[in-house]
Design a protein around this nucleic acid. Structure first.
Lengths: 205, 205
DNA sequence: CGTCTTCTTGAGTGAGCGCTCTAAAATGGA
DNA sequence: TCCATTTTAGAGCGCTCACTCAAGAAGACG
């Protein structure tokens, strides 16, 4: 976070970004609650004291992991597609097709971390669960906003329901993440994406 | 399980079925790992010794909970629809519409327990995760089988892909469970279900 | 050099976990 | 009545958890 480089005192001996990447992999694979400080310190190559000095505590580390994940290509592809594609139909087509490939990419843990990393949680970790839930709902809001814009622009008929469509696509995406974690490969997820796109109202694209 | 009633020895003082229901509610709400023996015994109204005497251990209790859940209306509605409906289209239409209502029913925890109760799990609880994953994949297999039958019966064109369709519906259902746990109400889930049904190939129903 | 600041190390904290044990209590059968 | 059997209550087992602390190490600055 605070990247005030090389001031006074003993310099940090480990690569903070690399440690964050290692933590990301573990949290993504197992989720927040099922990942222990012991596993984290081992994967990050540091001792507990260093972890707490650099990242405050487990919750703060997790939140920073999620933020950096959200700025990575794998975590940001939806927002990028919404921005870059000229039409809503093109944006959601791209989102679903990319999700199929990204969620099943064996280069990293399956699925979307925001969707799956904090689903089974004790009451004292409820804050973490709510944190991810908010991100998911913000994403849904972005879908709704984009589809409202599309309707105003005439891409969708006035009869189309932006909220219903947005919720539908969010549902499919969350389901695809689950299927990826259950072992579904890119081929299956791509077929699912194509079928899901059949729900797009009117064929005027 | 073994319901050998009233043999010798001191009779059990608590209602085994009621205790199982209380455990179901907790596991459904929080998941396997985030539910402690202490919370279970309090909710079930018994002491740890009684729990272990009656249910063996935490894993066995959870598996029995899942089995009884699978035999309840809320847990068995998909299999029932697949059996009772004369056509695959009718079956999947009913499944999606019922899921919308059941997953968001405030009478019990949101979503499907089989989908959400063991997603963030430590390596030593991997068996529990695999147990639920197998149930999900068996459900997917049942979808595939039903759609194969439908194609043979001429309900679907030969060009239709039973596995792709089955995976698509499974994906939507798992996504609906997630959305329900994020607070989606029956109205939204029903809209999602109707949109999802638009993917059904050819309009010959 | 000495001092200040920060990081690293390794031991160790209290709390909560799943689970067990002992002894008393409650039944049926001999 | 007495014994065999099973359940109960309650204390407590060993272990792991997230987290802390004291002491030393490594740089910057005077």
């Amino acid at each position: 976070m605070t990247e005030t480089r090389a001031k006074r005192g003993r310099p940090r001996e480990f690569d903070r970004a690399a440690a964050l990447t290692a933590a990301t992999h573990l949290f993504w694979e197992r989720g927040y609650a099922a990942t222990s400080i012991g596993e984290l310190t081992e994967a990050m190559g540091i001792r507990p004291g260093s972890l707490y000095a650099a990242f405050r505590d487990k919750k703060s580390l997790f939140k920073e992991v999620v933020h950096s994940y959200g700025r990575s290509p794998v975590g940001a592809f939806m927002g990028v597609a919404l921005e870059e594609e000229p039409t809503a139909h093109a944006a959601f087509t791209r989102i679903l097709r990319e999700a199929a490939v990204i969620y099943s990419d064996p280069a990293h843990p399956a699925g979307c971390m925001t969707i799956s990393a904090a689903t089974n949680v004790t009451p004292q970790d409820a804050e973490v669960e709510a944190f991810l839930r908010n991100l998911r709902n913000e994403n849904l809001d972005a879908f709704v906003a984009r589809l409202h814009l599309a309707r105003q622009a005439g891409e969708l008929s006035d009869a189309a329901n932006p909220h219903a469509l947005a919720a539908y696509f969010a549902t499919v995406i969350q389901g695809m993440s689950q299927r990826a974690r259950d072992g579904a490969a890119a081929a299956e997820l791509t077929e699912t994406a194509e079928l899901a796109l059949a729900a797009w109202p009117a064929a005027r694209h």
